[in-house]
Computed example of a mutant assay.
Amino acid sequence: MVYSGDSAPMLVLENKHSYSWDICISASEVSSGVTFYSYDDIAQAFSNYGVYAAQV
């Protein structure tokens, strides 16, 4: 994700059907205004809510 500012943004995901949970994921790497989020961090966050992401 490309951003401008003093700190890297968090990736926030929300259940679109019930809005019952928010998943907040910190950047795994930050470089010159670009953040990267790891698949493993995203998959782990989903699995905490019983949702399993398939790797493509």
Rank of each mutant, 00 (worst) to 15 (best):
residue 3 Y to M: 12
residue 37 Y to V: 03
residue 24 C to W: 08
residue 3 Y to S: 13
residue 55 Q to A: 05
residue 31 S to A: 15
residue 42 I to R: 10
residue 45 A to N: 03
residue 15 N to H: 09
residue 34 V to S: 02
residue 31 S to V: 14
residue 54 A to K: 05
residue 30 V to Q: 02
residue 48 N to V: 00
residue 39 Y to K: 11
residue 44 Q to V: 06
residue 49 Y to L: 03
residue 23 I to A: 15
residue 2 V to L: 13
residue 26 S to E: 15
residue 19 Y to R: 11
residue 17 H to D: 03
residue 30 V to K: 03
residue 20 S to H: 08
residue 21 W to F: 12
residue 49 Y to R: 08
residue 48 N to A: 04
residue 54 A to V: 05
residue 37 Y to N: 05
residue 21 W to Q: 01
residue 53 A to R: 15
residue 56 V to H: 14
residue 12 V to K: 03
residue 34 V to Q: 03
residue 37 Y to A: 04
residue 55 Q to M: 03
residue 23 I to C: 09
residue 4 S to Q: 10
residue 53 A to V: 15
residue 56 V to Q: 15
residue 42 I to V: 15
residue 51 V to M: 14
residue 47 S to L: 13
residue 25 I to G: 06
residue 12 V to H: 00
residue 55 Q to W: 05
residue 1 M to R: 04
residue 45 A to T: 01
residue 46 F to C: 10
residue 40 D to A: 15
residue 35 T to A: 06
residue 3 Y to Q: 11
residue 4 S to C: 07
residue 31 S to K: 15
residue 8 A to G: 02
residue 20 S to T: 12
residue 13 L to Y: 05
residue 48 N to Q: 04
residue 25 I to C: 09
residue 51 V to T: 10
residue 18 S to N: 12
residue 49 Y to A: 01
residue 6 D to K: 14
residue 21 W to P: 00
residue 21 W to S: 01
residue 53 A to G: 10
residue 33 G to R: 09
residue 9 P to G: 01
residue 21 W to G: 00
residue 23 I to R: 11
residue 22 D to H: 13
residue 48 N to E: 04
residue 3 Y to K: 07
residue 10 M to L: 13
residue 18 S to V: 06
residue 44 Q to I: 01
residue 19 Y to K: 13
residue 40 D to Q: 12
residue 29 E to S: 12
residue 42 I to D: 04
residue 7 S to G: 02
residue 7 S to R: 09
residue 3 Y to E: 14
residue 24 C to R: 15
residue 32 S to W: 02
residue 17 H to Q: 04
residue 40 D to L: 11
residue 39 Y to N: 08
residue 22 D to S: 06
residue 6 D to T: 11
residue 28 S to T: 10
residue 5 G to C: 02
residue 54 A to T: 06
residue 6 D to G: 08
residue 42 I to P: 10
residue 15 N to L: 01
residue 16 K to I: 08
residue 49 Y to M: 06
residue 47 S to F: 07
residue 4 S to Y: 13
residue 4 S to F: 11
residue 24 C to Q: 15
residue 49 Y to I: 01
residue 26 S to K: 14
residue 36 F to E: 06
residue 23 I to D: 07
residue 48 N to D: 04
residue 43 A to P: 01
residue 10 M to Q: 14
residue 27 A to I: 07
residue 7 S to E: 14
residue 33 G to K: 09
residue 1 M to C: 05
residue 6 D to I: 11
residue 6 D to M: 07
residue 37 Y to C: 06
residue 36 F to G: 02
residue 22 D to L: 13
residue 2 V to H: 13
residue 27 A to Q: 11
residue 55 Q to E: 05
residue 25 I to K: 10
